[in-house]
Design a protein around this nucleic acid. Structure first.
Lengths: 191, 191
DNA sequence: AACATAACCCTAACCGTTAGTGTTTAACAA
DNA sequence: TTGTTAAACACTAACGGTTAGGGTTATGTT
């Protein structure tokens, strides 16, 4: 799984990193809309096509850091202790994810995202994909035996909790409050 | 509120309608991605700039029909009988909206939307705005006196119900099931 | 009649994104 | 070592959504 990477892969990773770093720096410096892909490419000293060889879109440059979001969510479900109830495990993980997204130093980045419709849309779209992955994980858990609809709804509710908390005055309390609601909703689906 | 519209406004409305109709026809005919804005403009016999004077984006052309979605949702809350409990009223309205979106003849349109990432993203984005409007309506209701977080969460849950049902095998049953969950979640927030 | 302006047109461009077509260079086999 | 292959990258040109700039026409108003 982890062969010592050759020079080629190291160079590729370095190029990718350089592009991402340059982009984020320029975006935070001059504003997301004021920086074009051509600017990023020039500053990173690569061709425009190379940027798109590493990142699917301009928006993707901004969300380089949190790629494992989806994995962490689904693992919170699949890797929890046997017989540990679902909702507290999910609650804990969402709490952790929210802390990460509202951590010291993430302020300017969040402000930039909230300030750009394109970035907000992109983030929502990511969230929906994560909700679908989480729904699949819930549906696959043999201990849970709930309907597909219940799984899908609960997954979306959990993502809602995350989204609301990231923008709330008191993120921690928001996660707790919404998860009290989710707990009740989940119980209402018991077979 | 409703002065008899002059010739000018009538012509404007006619132009808008012609653009929307032409666009939808071409999209359903040849596929959303295969039709460019320049094609729509040419077929509707208007300038490209005129298209964007009436519609904010290419995607907006597709969703011309359901503009009153947001209004219907919030009115279901504000216009309900005095002392009528919130959730059943919301449940009924969402049920109606889902029926509208899964009605006979809406199939091709839905398939087109689901088939285009751009259209899906746009619809999500609309939904989020609707959720915010609904949350505001909930927060403004003097009979409800719930926290802002509870209102926001419930609003998003209701939108989730709509979104899930529109894509479900049995839309009606899906709305009912998710609203059973929402009812429980809402009760859990009682002061 | 004279004016103001809303609605529209045309052109040219900007920007994200992609296709097509080389060129370099790391990885590897002979 | 040398030759081969394929990945990574560069360059150019274009496409499609979107907008700015600047002009024309027709409508409502004085």
């Amino acid at each position: 799984m982890s062969e010592p990477p050759g020079r080629r892969e190291r160079k590729k990773a370095a190029t990718r990193q350089k592009i991402a770093d340059t982009a984020l720096r320029l975006f935070l410096d001059r504003g997301y809309d004021a920086v074009g892909i051509r600017d990023v490419a020039a500053e990173a000293d690569v061709a425009v096509t190379t940027v798109f060889a590493h990142f699917a879109s301009k928006e993707a440059l901004v969300f380089e850091r949190d790629q494992d979001f989806e994995q962490r969510l689904t693992q919170a479900v699949t890797d929890r202790q046997p017989h540990e109830p679902l909702i507290p495990a999910l609650h804990r993980e969402v709490q952790a994810l929210v802390r990460h997204c509202t951590a010291e130093g993430s302020g300017p980045l969040r402000r930039m995202i909230e300030g750009s419709p394109a970035l907000r849309e992109y983030e929502e779209s990511m969230s929906l994909r994560h909700a679908q992955a989480l729904a699949a994980a819930l549906a696959a858990d043999p201990h849970l035996s709930r309907s597909a609809t219940a799984c899908r709804a609960t997954a979306r509710f959990a993502i809602d909790a995350y989204a609301l908390a990231c923008r709330a005055d008191d993120p921690g309390a928001t996660v707790d409050e919404v998860f009290r609601m989710i707990e009740a909703a989940w119980e209402a689906t018991a077979p």
